[in-house]
């Protein structure tokens, strides 16, 4: 249902999320990303949402949780390529006020 793919470039870790993010798939995605964060302790985490077909508010929880993690590591989080429907959910949460969002 949902999967992740990673790419490292120096201090930057890019994680591409694929498929659907809901409460069911978020658990696995979250532990996958956190494992990568523990291993590489990057200064920048980029979450690429370009291949996400569906996301509900569980995805917000996932993103906000990783934002906190990156803050603890003293790094930053960038979220890129969200679809229009994902942007709609971001707006409800006012996510853009504290997380860097890059659109296509």
């Amino acid at each position: 249902m949902g999967s992740i793919k990673e790419k490292r470039n120096g201090q930057t870790l890019t994680v591409t999320l694929k498929g659907e993010i809901d409460h069911h798939s978020a658990v696995k995605m979250r532990s996958g990303i956190d494992k990568l964060l523990e291993e590489s302790r990057p200064s920048t985490l980029i979450l690429d949402l370009g291949s996400i077909e569906f996301m509900d508010s569980s995805g917000l929880g996932l993103i906000m949780g990783r934002y906190k993690k990156m803050n603890e590591l003293g790094g930053e989080l960038i979220v890129c390529n969200p679809s229009d429907s994902i942007l709609k959910i971001f707006r409800l949460a006012g996510l853009g006020r504290f997380i860097k969002i890059q659109t296509k």
């Binding site: 978020a26 508010s57 917000l60 929880g61 906000m64 949780g65 959910i89 949460a93």
Partner: peptide, 23 residues
């Protein structure tokens, strides 16, 4: 109420009803 959740530990955003109401 937006952002209200009884389950903060599990990374719930507290926006479930807000999404339903808005969409």
């Amino acid at each position: 109420v937006p952002l209200f959740t009884t389950d903060a530990e599990s990374e719930r955003s507290g926006l479930g009803f807000t999404v339903m109401e808005s969409f």
